[in-house]
Each structure stands twice: as C-alpha cells, then as structure tokens.
Amino acid sequence: MSDVTELTRELVSIPSHEDETEAGDFIEDWLRAETDADVTRDETGNVVARRGPDDAASLALVGHHDVVPPADSQTTADGGYVVEERDGRLYGRGTADMKGAVAAAMLAFRDATLPDSGPELVFASFVGEEQGGVGARAAIDRGFAPDYAVVGEGSTGYSAPGVTDVAVAHKGRRGSTVTARGAAAHASEPESGENAVYRACDAVDAIRDLDFPSVEVLGEEVRGSVAVTGIDGGSAWNVIPEECEVTVDERTVPGERAPLERVEEIEGVEWAVDQDLPPMRCDDEDFAETVLDAAREAQAEAESAPKLVSKPHATDAGWLAEAGTTCVVCGVAEPGEAHTKDESASVEVLERCYEVYRGVAERF
C-alpha cells in the first residue's frame, strides 16, 4: 500500500462532520513528526505549516478536513468512519471531498525538494469549508495570504474520464430571498386585499427573464445561472396571502452578477442576500501552465492529456482569490462522487495528485 493510500485511510477513518478537532490533531501531529516545518494551529482549528525561505514567493497546498454528515452505511458501531478498498478505489466519507487530496498534499509538502531561492511552501487544511468557508475566512482575517495556491478540490474527469485536469475558474453561489408583501383579505373579496403571491409571481417572471452572465478565463467560458428554487406563501385556503417568499439560487461568475435587485422595482417586493460564496478566476496564465505541466507529467501514460477547465462548484479558492491569492483547483474528486453514500476516490488518482503537488512545488 502506498504512503498516500495509507495516509488517506487514516484520515478518512477519523470522524469530522460535527467536530474537526480529532482530524486536526492528527494532521498537526503528523506534520510535527514527519517534517521540520513551522506548524501552527489557530483558534478556529486550521492547521498551517511552512517550510522554505520566508522572503520568497509563497505557494500553498490547500485543503479542508471537515466533511458533510455520513450515511449510516459509512459509520461504524463506535462512531468511526468505514474505509474500504476495492476495485482500485477507496470508499468512505471524505475520500473524495477531500481528505484524499489533503493526504496527497501533506506528503508532497514533506517530500518536495525546494531550491534555496524558494518558494516558501505552505500547507493549509481548513475547518468549516462545508459551512461556507468558515476556516478559510478566519485564516484570511488573521493574515493568511499566500501568493499562489493549489486548492485540492475535485478536478478529475472534467475533460475526459479519469483525467486530472486543472481548473482555472469556478462559479460562486449567491443564495437570496425575495419577499413579497401585500394585504390580507377574505378570499371571497380578493379585491379588498393585495395578493402577495401575485406580487411574488411578478418577481419570478422578472427573474426568469434575466440574462445569465458569462466570462472567459484563460480560454474557458464560465457561464452563470439563476434559478428559483422555492416559493412559500399563504396561510389558509380562504385568505388572500399577505406575504410570500421566493428562494433564489444564483451561480455567479468572476466579476459579474445577475441584476436581481431589479425585483425591487415591483411594488411590495424586497430582495435580501443570504449567502454569497465568491467565484474564482486564475489571474496568472504562467502559474496555470506550471500546474498543468506538472499534471501532464504525472499522467504522461494516459490516453488523454489534462486540460485547463472550469468548475461549477464554489470552493475555498474563491475566498483566497478574493483576498488576492492566485489560485487554481486540482484534486482527486470526480463529478458525482462528493457527498454521496458511496463516496470514493481512485487510488491511482490519489497517487497522481501527490505527484502533481510535489511537481508544482519543485518547478514553481
């Protein structure tokens, strides 16, 4: 069994959907035992390690060690997580999202041979990514600001099955609520009230007519979307509703937002943003090509070569990019693997990501 497979097994076996402390302890202890790096653990629970000259440009290998709640089949009787290997894959909560990439980054951080001129190599594993980037935002607030970062979220299987690509952009997510207010009345006399559902429907029509923003990032088109995902209004079948709420899911693109504020031009309608996870755009083509070269070398025998791609899901790379770090995303997970009851990761891809991360550090 390879080092990255064994380390992934150990990490995945540690529960971290409600409390990431034990997983953070394991990562911190391993880094202190296996490297001579400067290892810190902040009060939020983030683990950060640094090696190399601190006056050089910094390159971070970034992941997170929290996971979404497991299915019953993914837990043991004593509360641990089940980890199984079969048919060349590791199965278990967090194998794909994203303890496999964290393990690969830990080993690459330890093993990379750095020239005296740098870079300063940084390893970071954050808490609370699944809760909207809690750990990443806390670290940034405390001054975490690498010049460049490879974020180990999934990028495998985008250009072709089994190929580990390099994502140079991803969408963000803005979740919002449109609230329509009217005046209640008996339904037998609807003209004596103001129907909030009708006003909400006018807002839905306005949303449906919006154009979706689109941008190009290093030759990749990234197209946003807006969708109404819920509507709730009315209190009884014989009462004209005085309030109606509409939930809206918007997938944002770098530098653009759909003009959802237009719904407030409708009488009695208000719009409020509930969550805004930022998109990511790589702003340095040379860095993207450096990571792509490492990805090509790590899978030189594959039928298809990796490509620069875009990714539909928000990640901590969005928060880092917003704070000024040049980012790409490159990692283990394949589309459809994360957050499932059969979550798994290819052993071959785990080992490949170790080679990619190490290769980036050594050729940076």
Rank of each mutant, 00 (worst) to 15 (best):
V4H: 04
E6M: 14
R9P: 04
E10Y: 06
E10T: 14
V12H: 02
E28M: 04
W30Y: 14
L31F: 07
R50W: 06
P53G: 08
P53W: 03
G63M: 09
H64K: 04
D66S: 05
T75Q: 09
T76E: 05
G80Y: 08
Y81I: 13
R86S: 15
R86I: 13
G88Y: 08
R89L: 09
M98N: 05
G100R: 00
A105N: 00
R110L: 08
T113H: 14
F123N: 01
A124V: 04
A124H: 06
F126E: 00
G133E: 05
V134C: 07
T156M: 03
T156Y: 01
A160L: 06
S188P: 00
C201G: 08
I207S: 04
P213S: 06
G224D: 03
S225E: 01
D249A: 02
G255C: 10
E264T: 15
I266Q: 07
Q275G: 02
P278A: 10
P279W: 07
P279I: 09
T290K: 05
A298I: 05
A300V: 10
D316T: 10
A321E: 04
E322H: 11
T340R: 11
T340V: 10
T340S: 11
K341Y: 14
S344R: 13
E348M: 12
L350S: 06
F364K: 10
